[in-house]
Design a protein around this nucleic acid. Sequence first.
DNA 1: TATATATTGTGAATATATTCACAGCGTGAT
DNA 2: ATCACGCTGTGAATATATTCACAATATATA
Lengths: 211, 211
Amino acid sequence: MNVQIPDKTVGRLSLYRRLLSNLLGIEKVKFVFSHQLAKDAGVTAAQVRRDMMIIGYSGSPKRGYAIEELVESIGQFLDAPDLQAVALIGVGNLGRAILTYFAGRRPNLRIVAAFDNDPNKAGTVISECRCYAMQEMPEVLEKKNVTTAIITVPAGQAQDVADLLVSSGVRGMLNFAPVNLRVPASVYVEDMDITTSLEKAAFFARCRTAS
Amino acid sequence: MNVQIPDKTVGRLSLYRRLLSNLLGIEKVKFVFSHQLAKDAGVTAAQVRRDMMIIGYSGSPKRGYAIEELVESIGQFLDAPDLQAVALIGVGNLGRAILTYFAGRRPNLRIVAAFDNDPNKAGTVISECRCYAMQEMPEVLEKKNVTTAIITVPAGQAQDVADLLVSSGVRGMLNFAPVNLRVPASVYVEDMDITTSLEKAAFFARCRTAS
DNA sequence: TATATATTGTGAATATATTCACAGCGTGAT
DNA sequence: ATCACGCTGTGAATATATTCACAATATATA
Ligand SMILES: NC(=O)c1ccc[n+]([C@@H]2O[C@H](COP(=O)([O-])OP(=O)(O)OC[C@H]3O[C@@H](n4cnc5c(N)ncnc54)[C@H](O)[C@@H]3O)[C@@H](O)[C@H]2O)c1
Ligand SMILES: NC(=O)c1ccc[n+]([C@@H]2O[C@H](COP(=O)([O-])OP(=O)(O)OC[C@H]3O[C@@H](n4cnc5c(N)ncnc54)[C@H](O)[C@@H]3O)[C@@H](O)[C@H]2O)c1
């Protein structure tokens, strides 16, 4: 990956792909114009075309983008060639919701192991995913070749967990704990701060109401 | 709200406040410098100072920011003067996790009602929050003066739910369904797309590993 | 009281992201 | 075959976000 890919573009590509898959699967459409995709995605047509440019995909004037081909292209860009294994740490309320949601949903991006320090949880299976004890983590992560992790442990435990993950070779994390994780520059962290997002929604709700 | 407040700044203010509350409550510190807060928040010191400028809060050189006062200032800026009531629609796995998490956590920003179209859920109480049937929604939202909502229904239902919410006076939404909601310009939508975020983490995990 | 000093507040500079706007082109119509 | 049209691809322009850099300043110290 020599060129620096904008973070935002990656997010939109994932979004485009999902929308395109819907079009293909549900509406049986074969082609889309940038402005159609843009409308579904909530962005401008120019943005869509710019993103396509970034991944080097070309459409045709008059016909637009060949959906099937484009989905393939985005996949080639976003996905690992083989299975990309994901682990989830912290099988609490949120962790279980996520495990259940992703179970069997994506063949190439699968949660292959869950971990929790609660001894009652080790050994259980949630939505087809085995839950391991924390001390098994390094071994399991290596054996299953896990490179990506979802952190759903309490805030106070998140840094320790992140350190463990890093030392076990994880390079991408989706972090739900409300803390700024300190990781080496070679590790990517995507934060999902639900509380902050709710506060934003609440703030702008008032803002808009006032105007 | 005459000046246009940057979206990103609002998010960071929420984050700063949480970090500052920790400092006050746990570490008993009274003052912080911009670079200390910046480190905790994972941003630059200049960013912190710029954000403070935006809400019109001043620190003092040599001492920094008076934490208690600053928390108060951020609160004045972010929070409603009285209770801001929130509703949650879709009491599934994710919805229940969120209800449980926020129960009793914030006095001023509270989930005061949940809704689900499953008749088995209407009438139940999850983490002190009453779950209502969908047809009760307009009435309950008005009575409880709800202006903000969390959408955790399946993607196919989210637009209908959003329309209902808008017509009941909701002006801010936190949307977990993977669809772009079409709402009037006077309504704010904050999207939390867990799938896209996981794909981003996975993508950059590969990216970093390669380099 | 005077001084040294590390930090604030902020205009200007830079970086990043998005949009504009239009030349060029492929396609369906004729 | 030819044409007219509406779209794509993209350089340039603009908008937004962040960082730089430094004068102004409040305080701790002597
Ligand atoms: N649920 C929400 O809506 C919500 C909202 C905002 C933030 N969050 C954050 O998401 C995270 C998870 O939230 P939750 O509601 O699922 O909490 P939870 O308490 O239900 O689950 C936490 C789980 O982590 C496990 N755990 C604790 N320490 C551990 C460790 N060191 N190693 C491995 N496992 C450990 C616990 O046994 C538990 O199963 C928290 O950081 C929380 O702040 C959640
Ligand atoms: N759980 C996750 O980790 C996860 C990840 C990515 C996206 N999401 C999205 O979050 C949303 C919720 O996910 P979930 O896992 O909680 O799903 P879920 O199926 O467990 O819950 C959905 C709930 O919504 C209710 N519902 C359905 N239609 C409704 C309607 N018209 N009005 C009111 N209630 C209705 C259902 O009865 C159910 O209780 C979905 O849109 C999903 O795509 C969830």
